[in-house]
Amino acid sequence: MEIRQLRYVVRLAETLHFGRAAQLEHIAQSAFSGHVARLERELGVQLFDRSPHRVALTPAGAAFVERAEQILAQLAEAAADALTYSPSHQQVLRIGMFAEAAGELTPVILSVYRELRPDVRLEFTELTMVDQLEKLVSDEVDVTIVRAPFEDDRIRLRPIFSEPRVAALPRSHPLADAASISVDDLLDEPFATAATGAPAGWASYWTCDDRRGEQSRVATRVRSVGESLMAISCLGAVDTFPQTAARLFHHSGVAYVPLRDAAPSTVATAARLSDRRPHVHAFAVAVERAVEGHLAGVPGAVRAQAA
């Protein structure tokens, strides 16, 4: 029994047409048919019923194809695992970062990673509100540093730390000089809302829809923190930011006011569930070591618990 015979049988089960199956496998139809027939003789069982106008799987064929698909998938995974040890596949780690990433912890994470994997070159991509998941699942980046919440069965999300949120208000807002405010104080305000394409649950978290019980008023749609700051300062919009962003994104027209009862913001790393390459896993190790030794460098941050 040969691997190509398993592949040919699976292909024929997909098409139920010898000519099309052979064409897809780039082999002459006579040779393709010969391989299938030879496998049936070797097994001592008929996998396909053949007639001049119809090809159909037999019960034995259906059972065989199911197992053949599993074997081919396992072989593909084994090949991918072996390939990860090739230097040409380990030399670049593409990191996507949204906004302030992990704040003051970001350079620590990258420094630890370079110590762990000095053979890997780092490349960086700035993510927006609308592409922070898409760039990861479409293989444009390998790992990301993002802000939860996210729910997507294609990715593995690892929380790094949690911290308080603040309200981002126009300097002219009546509450701009308050020592702190409640989320309830924002519910009737027009928000700088994430543009179409942002994950729904993620977008509604920042506009406090869970407290309001419905969608917020929309001042304008934005794709980045920079656009949100412009909307706040120029259009009278409001928004909520993580405390780290308030430290790192200064704007003369924006006041940051602590939110005493807002759900905390969690920063996390994300990677594709299917990506088991060693240099990708090393990034998670670097994050863990950075948190263990340097989390105190992020004011107000507490270690996040895995979901």
Rank of each mutant, 00 (worst) to 15 (best):
H89S: 08
H89N: 06
L93P: 01
L93N: 04
R94H: 12
M97S: 13
M97N: 08
M97F: 05
A102Y: 11
E104P: 01
L105C: 08
V108C: 01
I109M: 14
L110V: 11
S111W: 05
V112G: 00
Y113A: 02
Y113W: 04
Y113H: 03
Y113Q: 02
P118A: 00
P118Y: 01
D119N: 09
D119Q: 07
R121F: 14
E123F: 02
F124L: 02
T125W: 15
E126A: 14
E126L: 11
L127N: 11
L127W: 15
M129Y: 14
V130F: 07
V130K: 11
D131A: 06
D131Y: 07
Q132V: 10
Q132K: 11
K135D: 12
L136F: 05
S138T: 15
D139G: 01
E140N: 11
V141K: 00
V141G: 01
D142G: 14
V143L: 00
T144N: 11
I145C: 11
I145M: 12
A148Y: 11
D152M: 10
D152P: 05
D152H: 05
D153G: 08
R154S: 10
I155V: 15
R156E: 10
R156P: 06
R158P: 00
P164R: 04
R165C: 07
A167H: 09
L169P: 14
L169K: 15
P170W: 12
S172Q: 10
H173A: 03
H173L: 02
P174Q: 06
S180C: 15
